[in-house]
Nucleic acid binder design. Structure first.
Length: 775
RNA sequence: GCGGGUAUGGUGAAAUGGCAGACACGCAUGGUUUAGGGCCAUGUGGGCGCAAGCCCGUGGAGGUUCAAAUCCUCCUACCCGCACCA
C-alpha cells in the first residue's frame, strides 16, 4: 500500500479549493441556512513569520467554521494582516528595512504560511491595514469621531515609551511597561489627540451582560472600566473663593477628615500661590514629584512624602473644622479629582502619612451616606477608572491623522478635518522614517507632506503629522471584510446589515482591555451615528467571543529571547498540516492552551496513517455492530465541536477508528470522514474523492445526523454498590426495574459475600445506572 | 491589597453528584520477511495477594450526601488581570 503523501495531497487540495472557491460565501445573499460570520483575530506580521501560537488560534477557529459550513450555513471566514503600526515598524527598523518594503515581504510570507495550514479562508476578501484603500476609511472614522465630538485634543501627562519614542494609551502600558517593547514608560506633559471612550463607559459596562463572551474577558473589562459610585464633596478654602472638590466612596467618614491632600499636578496649587507662605518649598516639591516616573513613584512604595501648603486652610463641611492642606504625590492626578480628604482613621495610606507628619487622627461617628451628602451639599456621582483613548503616535508607520491646523495668525480656523473626498491622506514614502524622539513624528520634517491649505478658509495651514494608534486600524476591520471590494463606502449598508454582527469571534485573552475594548467602543459609536445597524445588542460587534488559551513551549511563553519559538513550517513539512492541526487541538481544551512538545505528535501520525489504511478495507455491506459507535460519535463530535472541546472530539474519533477496523461500508466510511473533515481537511478530502468517488468537496457536504434509536443502549451495565462502594456489575436490559436489578444483583457472588449476615437498611436505585445497598 | 482561575498517574489529559484515570504519549513484555524513531497484541495509579478480591488514592483539613475529582467552609501553592483608584 502506498504511504500517505501529505505534501502532494495537501498542496493539491489547497490549490483546488482556491481555484473552485469552495470557501467563498455568497456575500449578497447567503445560501443554505443563512450567514455565519466566523471571525478570528487577524495576525500582525511583526516577526520572521507566523508562529505556531497563531496556527493554534486559527485552526481552532477554522474547525468551528468548517463545522458550521457543513451544517448548512454560508460561512464567511476572512483573513487579513494588521500590518500597520509600531509592531511591524519596530521589526522593520530592527532588520534595517523600510516598513513599506518589509510589509510586502511579510505579506507574501504570511499568506503563504496561512494557506499551508489548510484553513477555509475567504481569500477574495483579504485585507491589509496598510493598504491606502483600507486606511482611507480608518482616517474617515477618525473624522467621524471628530465631527461627533469624540475626538479632541488635550494637554496632559501622558505615557511615553522612551524606546518606541512615542506616547501610548493607558491600555498599552502593562505594569508600567510598554506593551510592545517592555521598556519602562515615563510621563510627559504633551498635547495629544484623544477619543472619548469614557462617554461610553456605562454602556461598555452594561452591555457586557447582554453578550455571550468568555467570562474572563468580561471580568477584565469590568475591572478596567472600574465603576465606582460615591460623592463629590466641596471643601471651601478659608479666606478665598476657591474650593477643593474631592471624590469619595465613603462619605460616612467625612467627620474623620483631618486634612486634605492635592496631587502635585493639581491646578489649584498655582492659583493659591499668593496665599502659600512656603511657596518655594512647595514649588521644589512639585518639580521633584513631576520629574519622577510612575515607575519611581511606585518603587518608593509606601514611603510617603509631602509638603504642607502653609497659610491655606480648608473647612470640613461636616463639622466646620479648619483642616490643613498638603501636596503629596501619593495622590494621583487623573484619579478621582486629583484631591482627597484624608481620613487616617479609615484609610491605611492616610494613616501612614498622618503618622509620619504628625497630623491629628480623630475617629468619627459613622453616619448614613445619603444624609451626609445632603447635609454638606455634596452630590452623588459615578466615577470610572477608564481614561480616554490616547490616539496619537509620534511614529511613521501608520495612517496619518486626517486633521489640518489653521493657525490664528493666518485664517485662525483652528483644527479642521480633511475633506472626506480628499481621503486618503497618503503616507508618503520617506527615507527617514525613524522615530525622532522629540514629541513630533518623522513626518513633521517632511515639508511637502505637512504644508497644505486650510479646507475652510483656503489659507496656508499645517497637517497633523502624528499617525493614529494601530488599535484604531484593528478596531473596525471586521466591518471592512464583507465590503472589501466596495470603493465608495467603508462598509456597504446592505451587506453590513446582512453579515453583521459577527457570530463567533475567537482570539487571545491578552486583548481583553486592548483590542476587545476598542472594537466595542468604535462599534457603539458607529451604531449611534446610524452608520451600522445591528441594534439587537446595543451596537455590539460580536454576539459571541471565545478566548483561546495560550500555547506555550517547554513550559514557558514563546519568545525570541527565550529561543523557544516554534516555527510551524517545519512541522507542516515533516508531518503535514492535518497532523499539526490535530496535534495542536489534541493538547487539551482549546480555551486552556497547552505546552507544545514534540513527544505527542506520534499519536496523531499513527492515527492519520490508520485513517489512510481504512480505504483498503471497505466492505460491500454496512456493519451493523458499527452503527451504535458511529452514531454515538456523531453526537459526541457534534456537541464537542460546538463547545470548542476539540480534544475530546478527537479522542472519540480515535475510538471510532478502532471500531471501524472490524468492518464498515463505504457509507459508514463517509460518515467517519465527515466527522474528521473539520480537523483534517486534506486527507478526508482525498479519500472522499479518490476512493469514494464523490464529485463535490467533503467540506460542503452535509454534516451527518445521528439516529437517537441507534445510540440507546439495549443492555446496561448496572453498577452494584454497597454503602456507596462499587462491588460488582450486572448487565440487564435497558429500563429494568428496581426489583429486577435488585434480584439480579443479589445473585452476584461477591455481593452475596458482602451482604451475608447483614440487613439492608435502604436501597438507592438510579434507573439505567446503579443500585446501592446501604447496610 | 482587590478580582479571577488552576491543582487528577512518569507526561498531556478524561469524567450530567454515580465503576476516577477515557483518549494519547512514554514505558514493559511478546509477536512480526521490523534496515530505520515501522506495525500488531497485551499490560501499565500505589499497596497486599497465585487468584478471586481487599485496602489506599483526584493539593491539604473539615462538612453535606446512600454516593464527592465534582457541592459547601477554611487553608496551601502556582498562574492571570487590576492596583498608593481615595
Amino acid at each position: 500500500m502506498p504511504k500517505y503523501d501529505h505534501k502532494k495531497t495537501e498542496k493539491y487540495w489547497q490549490a483546488k479549493w482556491l481555484k473552485e472557491k469552495i470557501y467563498e460565501p455568497d456575500l449578497k445573499s447567503p445560501r443554505g441556512k443563512g450567514k455565519f460570520y466566523n471571525l478570528m483575530m487577524f495576525p500582525y506580521p511583526s516577526a520572521e513569520g507566523l508562529h505556531v501560537g497563531n496556527v493554534y488560534a486559527f485552526v481552532g477557529s477554522d474547525i468551528y467554521g468548517r463545522y458550521q459550513r457543513m451544517r448548512g450555513y454560508d460561512v464567511f471566514e476572512p483573513i487579513g494582516l494588521d500590518g500597520f503600526g509600531i509592531h511591524s515598524e519596530n521589526y522593520a527598523l530592527k532588520i534595517g528595512k523600510h516598513p513599506a518594503d518589509q510589509a510586502k515581504i511579510s505579506e507574501k510570507k504570511f499568506y503563504k504560511q496561512l494557506r499551508a495550514i489548510g484553513n477555509g479562508f475567504a481569500w477574495d476578501e483579504k485585507l491589509e491595514t496598510y493598504d491606502p484603500e483600507y486606511y482611507r476609511w480608518t482616517q474617515w472614522i477618525f473624522i467621524q469621531m471628530f465631527k461627533h465630538g469624540l475626538a479632541y485634543r488635550k494637554k496632559q501627562a501622558v505615557n511615553w515609551c522612551p524606546s518606541c519614542l512615542t506616547v501610548l494609551a493607558d491600555e498599552q502600558v502593562i505594569a508600567g511597561e510598554c506593551e510592545r517593547c517592555e521598556s519602562k514608560v515615563i510621563k510627559r506633559e504633551l498635547e495629544q489627540w484623544f477619543f472619548k471612550i469614557t462617554d461610553y463607559a456605562e454602556r461598555l459596562l452594561n452591555n457586557l451582560d447582554k453578550i455571550d463572551w468568555s467570562e474572563k474577558i468580561k471580568i477584565a473589562q469590568r475591572n478596567w472600566i472600574g465603576k465606582n459610585t460615591g460623592a463629590l464633596i466641596g471643601f471651601k478654602l478659608q479666606a478665598t473663593s476657591y474650593k477643593i472638590d474631592v471624590f469619595t466612596t465613603r462619605p460616612d467618614t467625612l467627620f474623620g477628615a483631618t486634612y486634605m491632600v492635592l496631587a502635585p499636578e493639581h491646578e489649584l496649587i498655582r492659583q493659591l500661590k499668593p496665599q502659600i507662605q512656603n511657596w518655594s518649598g512647595v514649588e521644589t516639591y512639585i518639580n521633584t514629584a513631576k520629574a519622577k516616573t510612575t515607575e519611581q513613584r511606585i518603587a518608593e512604595g509606601k514611603e510617603k512624602t509631602g509638603v504642607e501648603l502653609k497659610g491655606v486652610m480648608a473647612v470640613n463641611p461636616a463639622n466646620q473644622k479648619e483642616i490643613p492642606v498638603w501636596v503629596a504625590d501619593y495622590v494621583l492626578t487623573g484619579h478621582g479629582t486629583g484631591a482627597i480628604m484624608a481620613v487616617p482613621a479609615h484609610d491605611e495610606r492616610d494613616a501612614e502619612f498622618a503618622k509620619k507628619f504628625g497630623l491629628p487622627v480623630s475617629d468619627a461617628p459613622l453616619v448614613d451616606n445619603e444624609e451626609i451628602i445632603k447635609k454638606v451639599g455634596g452630590q452623588k456621582i459615578t466615577n470610572y477608572r477608564l481614561r480616554d483613548w490616547l490616539i496619537s503616535r509620534q511614529r511613521y508607520w501608520g495612517p496619518p491623522i486626517p486633521m489640518i491646523y489653521c493657525d490664528p495668525p493666518a485664517g485662525g480656523c483652528n483644527w479642521q478635518p480633511v475633506p472626506e473626498e480628499d481621503l486618503p491622506v497618503v503616507l508618503p514614502k520617506v527615507k527617514d522614517f525613524r522615530p525622532t524622539g522629540t514629541d513630533k513624528s518623522p513626518l513633521a520634517s517632511v515639508e511637502k507632506f505637512y504644508q497644505t491649505k486650510c479646507p475652510k478658509c483656503g489659507g496656508p495651514a499645517r497637517r497633523e503629522t502624528d499617525v493614529s494608534d494601530t488599535f484604531l486600524d484593528s478596531a473596525w476591520y471586521y466591518l471592512r471584510y464583507p465590503s472589501v471590494k466596495d470603493k465608495k463606502t467603508p462598509f456597504g449598508p446592505a451587506i453590513t446589515k446582512t453579515w453583521l454582527p459577527v457570530d463567533v469571534y475567537i482570539g487571545g485573552a491578552e486583548h481583553a482591555v486592548l483590542h476587545l475594548l476598542y472594537v466595542r467602543f468604535v462599534a457603539m459609536a458607529l451604531h449611534d451615528w446610524g452608520l451600522v445597524d445591528f441594534s439587537a445588542k446595543g451596537g455590539e460587534p460580536a454576539t459571541r467571543f471565545r478566548a483561546h488559551g495560550l500555547l506555550i513551549s517547554g513550559g514557558a511563553k514563546m519568545s525570541k529571547s527565550r529561543g523557544n519559538v516554534v516555527n510551524p513550517d517545519e512541522y507542516i513539512k515533516k508531518y503535514g498540516a492535518d497532523v499539526l492541526r490535530m496535534y495542536l487541538m489534541f493538547l487539551g481544551p482549546f480555551d486552556q492552551g497547552g505546552d507544545f512538545r514534540d513527544e505527542g505528535v506520534a499519536g496523531i501520525v499513527r492515527f492519520i496513517n490508520r485513517v489512510w489504511s481504512l480505504k483498503e478495507k471497505i466492505a460491500s455491506q454496512d456493519s451493523l455492530e458499527l452503527n451504535r459507535p458511529l452514531h454515538k460519535s456523531i453526537k459526541k463530535v457534534s456537541e464537542d465541536i460546538a463547545e470548542l472541546h476539540y480534544n475530546t472530539a478527537i479522542s472519540q474519533l480515535m475510538i471510532l477508528s478502532r471500531e471501524m477496523e472490524n468492518g464498515f461500508s463505504a457509507e459508514q466510511l463517509e460518515i467517519f470522514l465527515k466527522l474528521l473533515a473539520p480537523f483534517a481537511p486534506h486527507i478526508t478530502e482525498e479519500i472522499w474523492h479518490s476512493i469514494l468517488k464523490n464529485k463535490e468537496s467533503i467540506h460542503i457536504a452535509p454534516w451527518p445526523e445521528y439516529n437517537p434509536k441507534l445510540i440507546a443502549d439495549e443492555m446496561i451495565d448496572f453498577i452494584i454498590q454497597i454503602n456507596g462502594k462499587a462491588r460488582g456489575v450486572v448487565t440487564l436490559a435497558q429500563n429494568s426495574t428496581e426489583p429486577e436489578v435488585s434480584a439480579a444483583a443479589q445473585t452476584n457472588a461477591n455481593i452475596k459475600k458482602h451482604l451475608a449476615d447483614k440487613t439492608i437498611i435502604k436501597t438507592v436505585f438510579v434507573p439505567n445506572r446503579l443500585i446501592n445497598f446501604v447496610i
